[in-house]
Design a protein around this nucleic acid. Structure first.
Length: 630
RNA sequence: GCCGACAUAGCUCAGUGGCUAGAGCGGCUGUUUUGUAAACAGCGGGUCGUGGGUUCGAAUCCCUCUGUCGGCUCCA
C-alpha cells in the first residue's frame, strides 16, 4: 500500500469515528463524547450516555447504555450521513472559545481535555498522544488555537485530517462495544467504547472478517480442545487449566529443553515450597504491592497463615543468603520451574495466556556484582537469541520497560534506575537489536526488557522478560564482600526466557496453528493398520518396539475403520508422520510415510525401510528442525 | 472487578411462551477387513450452566450466581 493510500485510509477511518459519534448524537441527543482515534483496522469512539432519556427505550429498560443491539440503527444512521455527502470543514477557535463551546454543548470530557491543554500544553491520557486525540500540542508550549471539524450538524474538537466529504467513507462495520475508563484511569467514569473496522472496499472488509474467522481456528483454546491438550472446567475453577497427557508431554518437552540449556550455561536448579509465611513478602517488599493478589490459607490452629507463592524471587534470595559470602561466589545463577498462583481478575483470564495457576515460570535469578552486570545481561540476551532460534520463534521484538516517576510505585533511587536502564540500552545497542521503550511499564524494583509478540488476533502480549532488580537485594539485606572486603549489595537479574511454559505453549500453538515440529509433537508417528490380521498387528508391534528404543512417541490406530478415515483422524490431530501398515509393508519391510503438509516441500512420497524411517524421525527430534528430512 | 455479548448432547449448532427438545459429527454394538482426509446399519446420549421468580404452561420472559468470549483497568 502506498503512503498516499495509507493517509487516505487513516483519514477515512478517522472520519468514520466522527460519523459514528454523529449518528449516536442523532439517536441520543445528550450523548457525551470522549475521544475517537484510529486504531489497527478501524477506529473507536468513547461515548457516555449516562443521564440519557431516549425517545426509544428498549423493552422498558433504561436507555443509558449502548449495546450491540443498537448497532443496526446506528449503522443505518451512519449510512444516511454518508449518503448526505456532507463536507468536512476545518476551522479554528482559541482555547477559551473552545472551552465555552464545550460547556454550551454539554461536553464535559472535551472541556476537560481543553482545560488540560490550556494549562499544561498537553493532554495526559495513557496510550493516547495528543495528536491521536486530535489536538495539536507540543509539551510545554503555549497553545492558543485548537482546530475543529464540522460535518452537517456535528462538530468535534479534532486535529484531522479528514475526508473531503462523508460520501467518501469506505466499507465499515461496527464490531463491538466495551467499557473503557475515561483517560485509562479506573478511578474515572467508565465510558462505552464502540469499535468499528473500516476498509477502502467491501471486498477488503469481507477479507478482514474472513481472516478473523480463520484466526479463531488458530486460537490456542480451540486447538487445546481439538488436540486434547488441556481444558478448563468450572469444577476446578476459572483460570486453572488441567493438562491432559498430550499437553503435559508438550510442556515437559519444553521444560526439559530449557533445563538442559540453562544447566549448560551455568544455571543451578533449586526447589522451594509453594506455601510461605507472610513475613517473607514483607521483607521483600512484594506485600506492599501484591498482597491482595495472593491466595492465602486460613490461619491454622497454631496461628500461622500461609500464602501460595506468586513468584520465586524471595525464595531464591533466601538461598543466596546461604550460599554467598564473597564476590568470589558470584555470579550465582538459580533456576526453578515452579507452579505459581496469582489472583487475576476474572475478566482478564485468557486460556493458558493469562491464568491463575499453576503458572510454571521458566524462572531464574542471577546475582551479580556491579562489574558483572553488563556482561551477564549480555549473556542472558545471547541465550534468548539462541533459544528462540532453536525453537524457530522469530516473530518477536523487545520493549525496554521504564518507570514513570510520576507514579508512587517508582519511588526512589532514580540514579540506580538510570544506571540499570543504561546497561540494558548499551547491551541492546551493542547487539544491534531493535527495541521500543515503554514508560510506566517497569517492575516496582527495576527496569525490564520485555519480549513482545502478537497473538493470533493481533493483540500484543509479553512473552518473556528480563529485569534488573535494583531495590530488593538492599531491602532484604543481601550482601557480599567485595575485593576490598567492603560489604556490597548485588544486582539481581530476573530472567525467564520462555516466560511461563503454559503461556509459551499457547503462543506456539497459535503461531503454528497446532502444527508443532516433530520434537514438540506429543504424538510423532501414527501407524494406521489396513486390517486387524495378526500378522499386521505383529508388524506394528515390532515397529513400536523399535521406536520406543529410540525414544520416539508413536501410536497405533488399529480400529476397525477405513484407511481413509484413520488417515483423516491423524491429520486432524496434526500428527507429523502417518504410516499405513498392510500386506505390502509386511512383505517388503518398507514404509511410505505420509508427511504433514507444513513439514514438507515436495509432495513426492519416499519409500524407506523401518529402520531408516525411525532413525530419520529420531534425528529430526534431536535437531529440533521444523522441516521434514524425508 | 467494570462494560457488552453469550451458556441447549462429548463437539459444532438448530429450536424466541404450547405435543415426549432436534440435526450433523463423535461414542457404543453389529455387518464389513478396508491402501492415504469421512464404509453401512442400528442403539444409546440432555436437570436446556445454577438457584429463584412471572405464568394454566418457561430452553424461550425477569432477577441472582457460576462460567465463557471481546474490550477496559491490572499483570511481581
Amino acid at each position: 500500500m502506498s503512503g498516499k493510500n495509507d493517509a487516505q485510509l487513516y483519514a477515512m477511518r478517522h472520519s468514520l469515528a466522527h460519523i459514528t459519534a454523529n449518528a449516536v448524537q442523532h439517536l441520543w441527543p445528550d450523548a457525551k463524547f470522549g475521544v475517537g482515534p484510529v486504531v489497527e483496522n478501524g477506529f473507536y469512539y468513547d461515548i457516555d450516555l449516562s443521564g440519557e432519556q431516549s425517545d426509544a427505550p428498549k423493552n422498558g429498560k433504561r436507555d443509558d447504555k449502548l449495546s450491540e443491539e443498537d448497532f443496526g440503527r446506528i449503522e443505518k444512521e451512519m449510512q444516511a450521513i454518508i449518503k448526505a455527502a456532507e463536507p468536512f470543514e476545518r476551522f479554528e477557535m482559541t482555547v477559551d472559545e473552545a472551552v465555552r463551546w464545550a460547556i454550551e454543548n454539554g461536553q464535559p470530557y472535551k472541556q476537560e481535555l481543553l482545560n488540560d491543554l490550556k494549562r499544561a500544553g498537553t493532554t495526559v491520557a495513557k496510550d493516547l498522544d495528543a495528536a491521536e486525540l486530535g489536538l495539536e500540542a507540543v509539551k510545554g508550549s503555549k497553545v492558543k488555537n485548537v482546530s475543529f471539524y464540522r460535518n452537517g450538524d456535528f462538530t468535534d474538537l479534532c486535529r484531522g485530517p479528514h475526508l473531503d466529504s462523508t460520501s467518501q467513507a469506505g466499507a465499515f462495520k461496527l464490531m463491538r462495544v466495551s467499557g473503557a475508563y475515561w483517560r485509562g484511569n479506573d478511578q474515572n467514569a467508565q465510558m462505552q467504547r464502540v469499535y468499528g473496522v473500516a476498509f477502502a472496499t467491501e471486498k477488503e472488509l469481507r477479507q478482514h472478517l474472513t481472516m478473523l474467522e480463520e484466526a479463531k481456528k488458530r486460537d490456542h483454546r480451540v486447538l487445546g480442545e481439538k488436540l486434547k491438550l488441556f481444558f478448563i472446567t468450572p469444577d476446578v475453577g476459572a483460570g486453572l487449566p488441567l493438562l491432559m497427557p498430550r499437553g503435559e508431554r508438550l510442556k515437559t518437552t519444553l521444560m526439559e529443553y530449557m533445563r538442559a540449556k540453562e544447566e549448560a550455561n551455568g544455571y543451578q536448579y533449586v526447589s522451594t515450597p509453594v506455601l510461605t509465611q507472610r513475613r517473607l513478602y514483607e521483607r521483600s517488599g512484594h506485600a506492599d504491592y501484591y498482597l491482595e493478589n495472593m491466595y492465602a490459607t486460613q490461619e491454622d490452629e497454631e496461628g500461622n497463615q500461609f500464602f501460595l507463592k506468586p513468584m520465586n524471587c524471595p525464595h531464591h534470595h533466601m538461598i543466596y543468603e546461604k550460599l554467598v559470602e564473597s564476590y568470589r561466589d558470584l555470579p550465582l545463577r538459580l533456576s526453578e520451574h515452579a507452579g505459581l498462583y496469582r489472583y487475576e481478575l476474572s475478566g482478564t483470564l485468557t486460556g493458558l495466556i493469562r491464568m491463575r495457576g499453576p503458572i510454571t515460570q521458566n524462572d531464574s535469578h542471577i546475582y551479580v556484582t556491579n562489574d558483572q552486570l553488563k556482561e551477564e545481561f549480555r549473556n542472558v540476551l545471547e541465550l534468548f537469541r539462541e533459544v528462540y532460534q532453536e525453537i524457530g520463534f522469530d516473530d518477536y521484538w523487545f520493549r525496554l520497560s521504564l518507570p514513570d516517576f510520576e507514579k508512587d510505585k517508582f519511588a526512589s533511587e532514580s540514579d540506580k534506575w538510570e544506571f540499570a536502564a543504561k546497561v540494558i540500552r548499551e547491551v541492546l545497542e551493542d547487539s544491534k537489536l531493535p527495541y521500543e521503550e515503554g514508560v510506566g511499564e517497569a517492575a516496582f524494583y527495576g527496569p525490564k526488557l520485555d519480549v513482545q509478540t502478537k497473538n493470533v488476533l493481533g493483540k500484543e502480549d509479553t512473552i518473556a522478560t528480563v529485569q534488573i532488580d535494583i531495590l530488593v537485594p538492599k531491602r532484604m539485606g543481601l550482601t557480599y564482600a567485595d575485593s576490598a572486603g567492603k560489604v556490597q549489595h548485588p544486582f539481581v537479574i530476573h530472567k525467564n526466557i520462555l516466560g511461563a511454559f503454559e503461556r509459551f505453549m499457547a503462543f506456539l500453538l497459535e503461531k503454528t496453528a497446532g502444527n508443532l515440529p516433530v520434537w514438540l509433537s506429543p504424538e510423532q508417528v501414527r501407524l494406521v493398520t489396513v486390517n486387524q490380521e495378526p500378522t499386521t498387528v505383529a508388524f506394528a508391534d515390532k515397529v513400536v518396539a523399535k521406536a520406543t528404543d529410540l525414544g520416539l512417541r508413536l501410536s497405533v490406530d488399529n480400529d476397525n475403520e477405513s484407511v481413509g478415515k484413520k488417515i483423516r483422524s491423524a491429520e486432524l490431530m496434526k500428527v507429523p508422520y502417518t504410516v499405513v501398515i498392510g500386506e505390502k509393508e509386511i512383505e517388503t519391510g518398507q514404509l511410505t510415510p505420509r508427511i504433514r503438509k507444513d513439514l514438507v516441500a515436495s509432495g513426492e512420497a519416499k519409500v524407506l525401510t523401518v529402520d531408516e524411517f525411525l532413525a530419520a524421525v529420531a534425528r529430526e527430534g534431536k535437531s529440533r528442525t521444523g522441516k521434514s528430512s524425508l
